[in-house]
């Protein structure tokens, strides 16, 4: 069974005075269990709308989707999902601890195990000190961290996170990346949206790039990284020289450069690939799309 299956889904919003916004157009995507998938696109690309379709918050105007084999129209599809909304808001008259207990119970967790798990996630997300305070008094970053806590509390198989790193400081962002990598090691599926390429680079198996409601490309992050190599920086220590010198070799020149150095009896101390990174890859796609 696939974790998430999206099949030719469309969503058109009807605005005032007959204005129509095609937020998502004919989008298909399959995400396997245990996979970390980055959903990358600029603001207004349709990422949140796609996620809301998956969560059954809005109904598709065409196509269908399922999570862990359940159609997203049914509440059963949400049984195995932890969902973090974009700029989340939670019952602000509750404290973080009370809220986590509420979520845990909704997922059928029982008291002693639930309390333990709540303490664990509260500590993990650095909310332990603030756990008894009403969320009304929380900062934006704290609410975001609680959002992650309420996703982790019931240990789902699928995580759907809408911009999980937004509103967090660098420490918080690193924490979230660590959590996602940890989920990966547990074989969980994470589907998260972002507009920041470096978030995708470090944690994702695959990335889907969405522009103006259309899924432009789905790639393995690894292959973008290897195929994106354009050349190498080679550090060479010549015989008798005090310092290394650096030489740049284009992709097809590398063996020639290395061979020449070895023939001269020099020592190669470092070869560093120079790659086109994900950001450039992303910007390329955006540019090509705009040119059309």
């Amino acid at each position: 069974m696939n974790a998430i299956e999206i099949s030719r889904i469309c969503k058109t919003f009807k605005g005032k005075r007959g204005a129509r916004v095609e937020a998502v157009k004919d989008l298909s995507l399959v995400i396997k269990q245990g996979e970390i998938f980055g959903f990358l696109g600029p603001n207004g690309a349709g990422k949140s709308t796609t996620i809301k379709l998956l969560m059954g918050l809005v109904r598709p105007t065409g196509g269908s989707a399922s999570i862990m084999g359940h159609d997203v129209g049914s509440h059963l599809s949400r049984k195995h999902v932890g969902y973090l909304p974009e700029n989340p808001a939670f019952y602000d008259y509750l404290s973080a601890e009370e809220y986590l207990i509420f979520i845990g119970k909704t997922f059928g967790m029982k008291e002693p195990a639930l309390k333990e798990k709540a303490e664990k996630v509260l500590r993990l997300l650095d909310l332990w000190e603030a756990r008894k305070r009403r969320m009304r008094e929380y900062s934006k970053g704290m609410v975001q961290r609680l959002g992650l806590a309420q996703v982790l509390i019931h240990d789902p198989d699928v995580y759907i996170l809408d911009e999980p790193m937004s509103g967090l400081d660098p420490i918080g962002r690193a924490l979230v990346k660590g959590i996602i990598l940890d989920l990966k090691s547990q074989g969980k599926c994470v589907f998260f949206s972002t507009h920041i390429t470096s978030d995708v680079e470090t944690v994702c198996d695959r990335v889907g790039i969405v522009l103006k409601g259309v899924l432009q490309s789905v790639e393995r992050v690894e292959s973008i990284m290897t195929e994106g190599i354009t050349g190498y920086h080679v550090r060479i220590k010549d015989k008798g020289a005090d310092e290394d010198r650096e030489e740049y070799a284009a992709k097809d020149e590398i063996s020639e450069v290395v061979g020449r150095a070895q023939a001269a009896g020099s020592e190669i101390t470092l070869i560093e690939p120079k790659r086109k990174n994900l950001e450039e890859f992303f910007l390329d796609i955006v540019k090509r799309k705009d040119a059309r």
């Binding site: 969560m55 949400r78 969902y83 997922f107």
Partner: peptide, 14 residues
């Protein structure tokens, strides 16, 4: 209005 529905309707409740 306060968008609590997003977080609550993301739970497996009808």
């Amino acid at each position: 209005e306060r968008r609590y529905t997003f977080s609550v309707m993301g739970l497996p409740v009808t």
